[in-house]
């Protein structure tokens, strides 16, 4: 592409030279020089014979005729060369930038779309707040928790923050449900998150790998069994926590219809599930996304949703293969479309 344009410019400039513009310019320059000489001759105090004047002018004109076309031609050629060089340089730069962009587009994949990311942010911010305001109630005898309660302004305002966070969690659940039903990605992800026989095979394979009976890790699709576990743990947790929590929040209303022991059972389930969820997050989720040597100290995946190509190939090879296949198909379709159009 770049080469042909360069040639075009060269040809054009050569044509311009050939078009005899040089001579036009040469004529003008010659006239200028002659008129200047004539002016100078007029001004001179000593009398110069007219013949001599004619001779001087004639010799000047001859000399100018000899050198001007050559000089102008050379100058023009130089200018053209410089212009060509500048054009080539900027073109190279443009090409480089384009190449870079292409490279970045190639190297990362959008793993989580904006809805998914907002849901995750709602989930983690509400859960952190819920744990901080809830855990002291489970272990009131553990004295550092008294500090935590004070941090939120005493038990009454700590209670308010707990319920505020609960509202965020409920909104998250509603958002996620609507997303799963209404959004194309949501429906696809939900189906991909369903437990499959392959997950059991993957667990066995991974265990084999851990014990050195297999040389490579199992090949995961878009969601590995680890991620599926996380997803369904949150699902189970949300159902238990929101269900029992709502009964306890509106206990005066729930006691209108339910016996006290039902609420006591809710309280027990709420606090026990809270401990389980906290442990699962702190031990399991934090290991998988933070403390794992490959990941430490964590990535910004939750913020931009993009995953680098190498990580994609390593952790989700099946999804990567699928994507590549789709891309190829698309290319082929485009190509066939092009040929049809032409």
């Amino acid at each position: 592409m770049a080469g042909t344009e360069e040639e075009n410019i060269k040809k054009e400039s050569a044509l311009a030279v050939e078009a005899g513009r040089n001579e036009l310019i040469a004529e003008q320059l010659k006239n200028d020089v002659i008129s200047e000489i004539q002016a100078k001759l007029k001004k001179s105090k000593t009398e110069i014979p007219a013949e001599t004047k004619e001779k001087i002018l004639q010799s000047t004109v001859n000399r100018l005729n000899q050198i001007l076309p050559r000089k102008i031609g050379r100058l023009k050629q130089e200018l053209v060369d410089e212009a060509i060089r500048a054009a080539a340089k900027s073109q190279k730069e443009i090409a480089e930038i384009a190449k870079k962009e292409e490279k970045t587009a190639e190297e990362t994949f959008l793993r989580f779309n904006i809805h998914f990311r907002i849901q995750h942010m709602m989930l983690f911010s509400s859960v952190i707040l819920l744990i901080l305001t809830g855990l002291p109630l489970k272990f009131p005898a553990f004295s550092p928790f008294a500090f935590l309660v004070d941090l939120f302004g005493g038990i009454e305002s700590s209670r308010f923050f707990h319920r505020f966070a609960a509202v965020i969690l409920i909104l998250f659940m509603v958002y996620h449900t609507l997303y799963t039903i209404l959004h194309r990605d949501g429906r696809r992800d939900f189906l991909l998150l369903l437990p499959m026989p392959k997950d059991i095979k993957d667990v066995i394979w991974n265990l084999k790998y851990f014990f050195g009976l297999s040389d490579d890790r199992p090949k995961f699709g878009r969601f590995s069994y680890v991620e599926k576990f996380d997803y369904w743990a949150v699902y189970w947790g949300c159902v238990i926590m929101i269900g029992s929590g709502a009964l306890l929040w509106f206990q005066d209303i729930s006691l209108m219809f339910l016996p006290k022991f039902a609420l006591d059972a809710s309280k027990e389930a709420h606090s026990d599930e809270a401990v389980l969820a906290t442990l699962a997050i702190v031990i399991w989720h934090f290991y998988n996304v933070h403390f794992n040597p490959d990941k430490f100290p964590g990535s910004l995946l939750w913020l931009h949703g993009r995953i680098p190509k190498d990580e994609m190939m390593e952790e989700h090879p099946l999804e990567y293969a699928e994507l590549m296949k789709q891309k190829e198909n698309q290319h082929q379709v485009e190509k066939s479309n092009d040929t049809e159009n032409t």
Binding site: L255, K260, F261, E273, V275
Partner: peptide, 29 residues
């Protein structure tokens, strides 16, 4: 408050079998 407040033990010990359903919930978790 209605009679539902009286259904079930007041001082509930989830570790004691006498607590009924609460004991089994705690056991399960």
């Amino acid at each position: 408050a209605n009679i539902n407040y009286a259904k079930g033990k007041m001082h509930v010990n989830p570790k004691s079998k006498q607590s009924g359903i609460i004991y089994y919930v705690a056991f399960f978790f």
